[in-house]
Computed example of a mutant assay.
Amino acid sequence: MKKINRTKDLLNPDKHGYYGDFGGAYVPEMLYPNVEELKDNYLKLTSTKKFKKAFDALLKDYAGRPTPLYFAKNLSEQYNTNIYLKREDLCHTGAHKINNTIGQVLLAEALGKKRIIAETGAGQHGVATATVCALKGLECIVYMGEKDIERQAPNVARMKMLGATVIPATSGSKTLKDATNEAIRDWINNPSDTYYIIGSVVGPHPYPDMVARFQSVISKEMKKQLKKVTGDENPTHIVACVGGGSNAAGAFYHFINEKKVKLLAVEAAGCGIGSGRSAATTQLGTTGILHGSKSLLMQTTDGQVVEPHSISAGLDYPGIGPLHAQLYTSRRAEFLSATDEEALQAAFNLARKEGIIPALESAHALAILNKTEFKKDDIVVVCLSGRGDKDLAAYMDHL
């Protein structure tokens, strides 16, 4: 077999959907037409004036963009550097997830799909999907792990109020991985009328590229905002948490080719890297195939997926997206990790220093401020991917 020459481009996948050695589309035969239809049309449709106008209008007038770039004065004094927070927590629905769901629902409409399915962990993607489906009058089914339904009850209530049907995933660890499995089964059984909105930069091509493009509005805004407040559109560091990795992909996107900008990706170490209860994929994972793409994932020697653990439902995933796998193996981004306890302490610190309660996912990014050496004149941007309303029960347990 002739060897395919994989792209070395860190930002864009090749025509087969590979970032270096990672990516591709590994799907059941019944889903092949759906994935091919999307692959053949997503760039064409999203580049039209009509799509761009509708997307930009909804981001501005409905989602509330641009989100602020906030100079965290008290946090900056604590760490003796300059820390800015990209306030994705101030988006409608409380997280960056709305950027992607607006884009994908517009695509679904353009493709004539009336039934929308999604998976969710922390519930933010589920809420964002239910929100835009309500706006557009589309049927919405959200799959969510039974364990996550219990620990993210406020978001489950929001989805139901928005008219979505929430279906529990009761197999495996009953978390995000299992919700994704159930969503894929649904898609296999309903290939003709159903559009699957994947919430992160995972899954078969073109999803990783498509989600990264929709989320790239984060870094696009950051460049303009930094230029205005610092005189330079490039910071020294960008910090973002990584589960599948959509907020990190969005925060990194327009800086990936800016080699002087240090990209810091923070995974969930759970109870510790070597504890057997972790979700730090780059530290524990090997190359394999999960949910339709080749990437790094936590697995046994015979290829069985290792159950992940994190106090954060949104980071409780056994793999990372292929873009992030490429950023890790190429050393373009530095991958760090934070434990459950470190994330909790970082969340309480932000709340008491700045009056902002972050999502547990975002708290992992904040936690590495304690682990990284910054200079006094560095410009550090932390992507605050979501707000902490949904995690108040977990926070109350640790007060």
Rank of each mutant, 00 (worst) to 15 (best):
I197Y: 08
T236A: 09
F214S: 03
G319W: 00
G231W: 02
A251M: 04
K227T: 08
P206Y: 10
A240M: 05
L264G: 00
I320E: 02
R277L: 15
N247C: 11
A280Q: 07
H205V: 10
Q299W: 04
K259A: 06
T194S: 15
G276R: 14
A279W: 02
D232K: 15
G285W: 03
T281E: 06
Q299K: 14
L297H: 03
K259S: 09
E307T: 11
A248S: 08
P204E: 11
G203D: 10
D316I: 06
I197W: 09
L284W: 04
L297Y: 04
T286H: 12
K227G: 10
A240S: 14
E233K: 12
H309E: 07
L226I: 13
S275T: 08
S310L: 10
G276D: 13
V202S: 10
H254G: 08
G285D: 11
L315E: 01
A280I: 04
S293R: 01
A251H: 00
V239M: 10
D209P: 00
S192C: 10
Q299T: 12
A265Q: 00
Q299E: 11
I320M: 11
G276H: 14
N247L: 10
G270L: 08
T236Q: 11
K294A: 06
H237W: 07
L284S: 08
I256A: 04
P206G: 13
P204Q: 11
P322A: 07
A249W: 01
I197C: 14
G319D: 02
P318Y: 03
K228T: 13
D232C: 13
T287M: 14
E267A: 00
V201R: 03
G292E: 05
D232Q: 10
A248T: 05
G270Q: 09
